[in-house]
Design a protein around this nucleic acid. Sequence first.
DNA 1: CCTAAAACGTGATTGAAATCACTTTTTTTC
DNA 2: GAAAAAAAGTGATTTCAATCACGTTTTAGG
Lengths: 242, 242
Amino acid sequence: MKNSLCGKKTCTMCGFENCIRSIPLLSNLSVEQAREISEGVQSKSVKRGEFLFRQGQRADRLYIICSGKVKLLKPQMDGKEQILYILSEGDFFGAFNLLKEDRLQYDAIALEDTQVTTLEKNEFDKIILLDPTITLKVFEKAYERIKKVENLVARLSTSSLDAKVAGLLLTLVEGFGTQVPEGILLSLSINREEMGSYAGIARETMSRKLKLFEEMGYISFIGTKKIVIRELKALEMLLEDA
Amino acid sequence: MKNSLCGKKTCTMCGFENCIRSIPLLSNLSVEQAREISEGVQSKSVKRGEFLFRQGQRADRLYIICSGKVKLLKPQMDGKEQILYILSEGDFFGAFNLLKEDRLQYDAIALEDTQVTTLEKNEFDKIILLDPTITLKVFEKAYERIKKVENLVARLSTSSLDAKVAGLLLTLVEGFGTQVPEGILLSLSINREEMGSYAGIARETMSRKLKLFEEMGYISFIGTKKIVIRELKALEMLLEDA
DNA sequence: CCTAAAACGTGATTGAAATCACTTTTTTTC
DNA sequence: GAAAAAAAGTGATTTCAATCACGTTTTAGG
């Protein structure tokens, strides 16, 4: 029941400066500056499973997640998908493509009912000039992305199935995890198929390996969508040694 | 027999401003500014196979390649390596870690005899303030990196062997390729093992698939280290459809 | 130029995860 | 709350690339 970053009460179209300034990326804008760009700002709701955009579309807006989660993925030739990133509240995407005037490189699909604020390219260009801290924030996000995707490469390229699944679980902590007395609770909004797709393995293999991890006492299940990581150290070990 | 970017004749230690200003990244510096940072500048030669740095080391310098090639890789648990990037003349690395005061995330090994100019962190911090175009160049490099590594993910995650090898060849064009009448000539300074490691497959599999591509007429060999891509379109097709 | 070492090619074999096929469970929706 | 649809679990089977093993070629170095 947490509040949306874009201030639900007054904001259906996100046209008020007190609204967009509550978004971390835009928090340094003055009231004037915020008003200046307010015309290019839109708020959009998407239901679980819906596309925000598709690969190949023109990159003409910046997307900022106010609530919910979004996966960015590349469709594969064989009809499967490779998830590249899972993004949460406060994350933004589309910016890098905007700056390079490129086409969008992936599909964006909501994992939950999601609220996004979008900003038109020309307004984005404006505020980047107005507020130098935004460039910095975009740069930091770029660095974060590089680390995430390099991490993904490590996961995909290891030959050890244990390491793939352990690595996935650890990756999911950031994004789905909360500390609980028993360890770390993952409240997932992705299914086994998607977990497999993020780790580069088949759904069935994911199921089986998770079950083994449970038998080892590393994790435990609450239903299927909640996983408690009980032995974080054990999982981290699986990443280091064969 | 091309000239080094850092101006061989006058430069053994790269301490002269006419030298470092010939490096694209630093080309916008004034003579004064260049002189200011000259103390933090060093030139270094590494032979093929030698390490420039190792994963886990403190990130305290920026590396700019003047001539030669460098691979950045992550050692895997099973003793193998996963190549993340192959960088050439004009590319720089270590900068992102510098800015985030991080540890270096990979090993850097010279693929050929390589000349690098390095810049100490504190001098780098100085010039980033002096010359705003440098920030921009670093940002562009970051974007380039993201694209490269996302591309790598696509290669690793496809189930099609054809697509992996075709994708690798296309990736190698940028970096090793030159246009010739018959198509694109790749003059490789990596061996089959490394090609495999970059594509996420075994050496033997790489050999066999390249041979098949030759039989198909897509490529032809001149010795083992030179490959002519004759049917670029055919390779591109392999990436798109199963 | 010769020798040793590294890189490469290639057939045979193996193995681990993908796939298939089906049941059970969970979730959605009407 | 029942029916339908989606997701998940699980055993059996297949498949395709990894591995093994070894001969050959190329490269490096004294």
